[in-house]
């Protein structure tokens, strides 16, 4: 009981600290300088219609590289932690087979879901969405396959190959930007094109597709590792 009271007191104190922030908040009337720069220069400089994508992929591209690295590390540590001590010759209970409905449905739906994921990250510079969302959608297609055939081991080698190749290509494009354009991860190594077309915005669609593949592979490996654990 005393724990609960102490926690409540702590939360109340934190709430009292947050309350002035809430009451003293006035929404801005105009964009601040940074946002104004992004709003005015994105179309002319990078040719991307979606400004959030332009920030994530190009203006703050280095941060995104770091983010993908953090995600890779956490996926790798999940695999490492779960693989330690796991014996290859596990007896265990045999998994129950998935139902007919799920098996047949997943054969129809999984390719369509993957296609949607690819559509989302290829159009990342024009419409809402991009590599992270598309990657998550691809991973949910993989999840459907995992649920439909619980016995089958997913190809970890394929996932690792996609993951490392797309990561390598991402860094290679970044270095190409350093050599042929203004700096690391500059998208102007390819022509900017006209605003609003699929083949525009320089290297942004290429980079975001690579991010999508990488993120999809990382999420898939997390899901596969967690689903292959034994029931305790």
């Amino acid at each position: 009981m005393i724990r609960r009271a102490a926690a409540l007191a702590l939360i109340a104190a934190l709430g009292a600290l947050l309350l002035p922030l809430l009451l003293g908040y006035h929404p801005d009337e105009a964009l601040n300088l940074t946002a104004c720069y992004y709003a005015e220069r994105t179309a002319a400089d990078l040719g991307a219609a979606n400004i959030v994508t332009a920030i994530v992929v190009t203006y703050r591209g280095l941060d995104t590289l770091g983010e993908v690295t953090v995600l890779f590390l956490s996926a790798a540590v999940v695999g490492l932690v779960l693989a330690r001590g796991r014996t290859a010759t596990t007896g265990g209970r045999p998994r129950l087979p998935a139902g007919e409905l799920l098996t047949t449905g997943s054969r129809l739906l999984a390719p369509l879901i993957m296609l949607l994921g690819i559509y989302i990250f290829v159009n990342g510079h024009l419409t809402p969405g991009g590599g992270f969302q598309g990657g998550a959608v691809i991973a949910s297609g993989v999840l459907l396959l995992l649920l439909a055939e619980p016995g089958r081991r997913l190809g970890h080698r394929v996932i690792a190959l996609v993951e490392s190749l797309s990561g390598l290509a991402y860094v290679a494009i970044g270095v190409a930007g350093l050599v042929y354009a203004g700096g690391f991860l500059d998208n102007r190594i390819l022509p900017i094109g006209t605003l609003g077309e699929l083949a525009s915005a320089g290297a942004i669609p290429v980079i975001y597709s690579l991010i999508g593949l990488k993120v999809g592979a990382e999420f898939s490996s997390m899901l596969a590792n967690l689903s292959e654990t034994e029931e305790l």
């Binding site: 940074t34 946002a35 104004c36 994105t42 400004i51 809402p128 605003l195």
Partner: peptide, 21 residues
């Protein structure tokens, strides 16, 4: 939303969109 299209031309983006950061 900070997405440029027919409704939000690039020229008046700074006065039409919210903060993308």
């Amino acid at each position: 939303a900070p997405i440029l299209d027919g409704a939000v031309p690039a020229a008046e983006a700074a006065s039409r969109i919210i903060d993308p950061v």
